[in-house]
Design a protein around this nucleic acid. Structure first.
Length: 487
RNA sequence: GGCGCGUUCGUCUAGCGGCCUAGGACGCUGCCCUCUCAAGGCAGAGAUCACGGGUUCAAAUCCCGUACGCGCCA
């Protein structure tokens, strides 16, 4: 794909916490759009909230995006290093730029200092609501010089508000929602600089999107209502606004905005629970976007080729962890056994199975159990009994092994298998089926207790291959132990 | 309170005026396969397209209201 410098997208998170599912989807769509069109994807850290921003959050966000397999062309590489031609991508390092533009608007008479306290603003709003809910007339908009000096003398620090026009309308041509109209007289004068001197989100983001030459602002629905004011700021500064695309929200199962209450919402939690990044990416891509054939499975490169803003949904989507798990299983099943082992490495390490413990090779076990895994953490869980002492499940011990005649069956199997050669899948199956026949037992009467005695479970790998991989010593030892324990 | 956005199976969605007796996917149920569990295959249940009015020969699709949900102003 050719480079297309005209297409520039960005993701601009506030580092006030981890990267959550919604932010991840926004990142993904911006990334997909940029990659699809050979453009540039920018990452910018909006850390102007000095109280809540933390370095740990920056690191978590960077780690999350990296883990998802999404890369950015400009932005921070870590807490110290950055790449890209726009100076810093941390807003706290760009403060002079915002102040300079606030000054410009002030000088041009497009903004004014507002000395109202929070209480006064609240009161004004309340009375406006009581009077039919139109825009509260900001008392500072027509402040006399004398009054201003009075406030200054009283030590009041002003915020700066941008003047919205009193008539006409502002039209947002949204790439997803179409034409959205806003009456200017109903738009409040937006605060662009806080009393602390720092820029507000809505202002800094306009200045930076312009400075960084962003062509397409793809962001969450919650910003749609602020867009007309932002467009007016572009206009007041003599700039052309970028194109906008507002994504619908992601909801929890109860229909409210997805949040911590609904369980894991951090991208890193999904990593730690054993999801594959390509599965999460695939799932997230489909939460609010689809192709006309309703195709479900897309590898990342296929997403890049297929992604299109016109396929984006206007209505909010409910996050469905069950479907995500299905999709993860789908990807896991598609991996080669060696790949499963290497991708599950941290989980296997935590369980003490990496480096490879004595016993059957992990890779062969992974091959045998591949279609059972839904999460990477299932890998050590499903394989544990090959390396650890048997723990009997309630079903296995209480029902299967407790059935009448089981002890004899187990002892018979001990006798059969003690010197059995070759200890292989096929030979074992033939011999054990023969054992059933000679004793007049149905296969199930032998297979089930055998599985339970050897693995402690009533479900698991295909029986004879499991025996082969365990090896004779383990199988016979476990049969003896189970028989002894039966008394 | 105002403004904005939204509303198709439980969930994600297809649908852009006739192909819709509404298609696909997850989940669910049943059957097949089978040494268990999965995976896979097949079949099925599941949406009067939020509701009410229009426009039209014809509407899930266009228009207007209402309700509900969400967002922004906060």
């Amino acid at each position: 794909m050719n480079q297309n410098p005209a297409i520039r997208t960005r993701f601009a998170p506030s580092p006030t916490g981890y990267l959550h599912i919604g932010g991840a989807r926004t990142t993904l769509y911006n990334w997909l759009f940029a990659r699809r069109h050979g453009g540039v994807f920018v990452l910018r850290i909006e850390d102007t909230d000095e109280v809540r921003s933390t370095e740990a959050s920056v690191t978590a966000i960077l780690d999350s995006i990296n883990w998802l397999g999404l890369d950015w062309d400009e932005g921070p590489l870590d807490l110290e290093r950055e790449k890209g031609g726009s100076g810093s991508y941390y807003q706290m390092k760009r403060l002079p730029l915002y102040q300079e533009h606030v000054r410009r608007l002030l000088d041009a008479g497009r903004a004014y200092p507002c000395y109202c306290t929070k209480e006064e603003t609240d009161a004004a709003r309340k009375s406006a609501i009581a009077n039919g809910g139109t825009r509260p007339e900001d008392p500072c908009r027509r402040l006399t010089q004398a009054k201003r000096r009075e406030h200054e003398a009283a030590g009041r620090k002003p915020a700066v508000r941008f003047i919205m026009p009193d008539e006409g309308e502002t039209v947002v041509e949204d790439l997803i929602r179409g034409r959205v109209r806003f009456e200017n007289r109903l738009q409040p004068d937006l605060v662009i600089q806080k009393t602390t001197g720092g820029p507000t989100y809505n202002f800094a983001c306009v200045i930076d999107d312009h400075a960084m030459n962003i062509s397409h602002v793809i962001r969450g629905d919650e910003h749609l209502s602020n867009t007309p004011a932002q467009m007016r700021i572009y206009e007041a500064l003599g700039w052309l606004p970028p194109k906008f695309a507002h994504l619908s929200m992601i909801l929890g199962p109860d229909g409210t905005k997805l949040s911590k209450r609904h369980g894991a919402t951090s991208v890193l939690d999904y990593r730690d629970r054993g999801f594959l990044p390509e599965a999460l990416v695939n799932y997230l891509a489909l939460l609010g976007w689809s192709t006309s054939d309703s195709r479900q499975l897309f590898r990342p490169d296929e997403l890049v080729a297929a992604f299109d803003l016109s396929g984006c949904q206007k209505n909010p989507a409910t996050f469905d962890p069950v479907k995500l798990e299905w999709m993860n299983g789908e990807y896991l099943r598609g991996l080669a056994p060696a790949e499963i082992v290497s991708r599950a490495r941290t989980f296997l390490e935590a369980a003490g199975f990496v480096p490879q413990p004595p016993g059957p090779p992990l890779e062969r076990l992974a091959a045998m159990e591949r279609e059972k895994f839904k999460l990477l953490k299932d890998v050590p869980e499903r394989l544990a009994f090959f390396y650890r002492d048997v723990e009997f499940s309630e079903q296995a011990w209480g029902k299967v092994l407790a059935a009448p005649g089981v002890k004899d069956v187990l002892l018979g199997l001990v006798e059969l298998l003690d010197r059995f050669e070759p200890f292989s899948d096929k030979a074992l199956e033939a011999a054990i089926r023969g054992f059933c026949a000679s004793r007049g037992l149905k296969p199930g009467q032998v297979f089930h207790p055998l599985r339970a005695a050897v693995s402690g479970r009533t479900e698991g790998p295909t029986l004879f291959l499991m025996l082969e991989l365990m090896g004779r010593d383990m199988v016979v030892g476990r049969l003896r132990a189970a028989a002894a324990r039966l008394g």
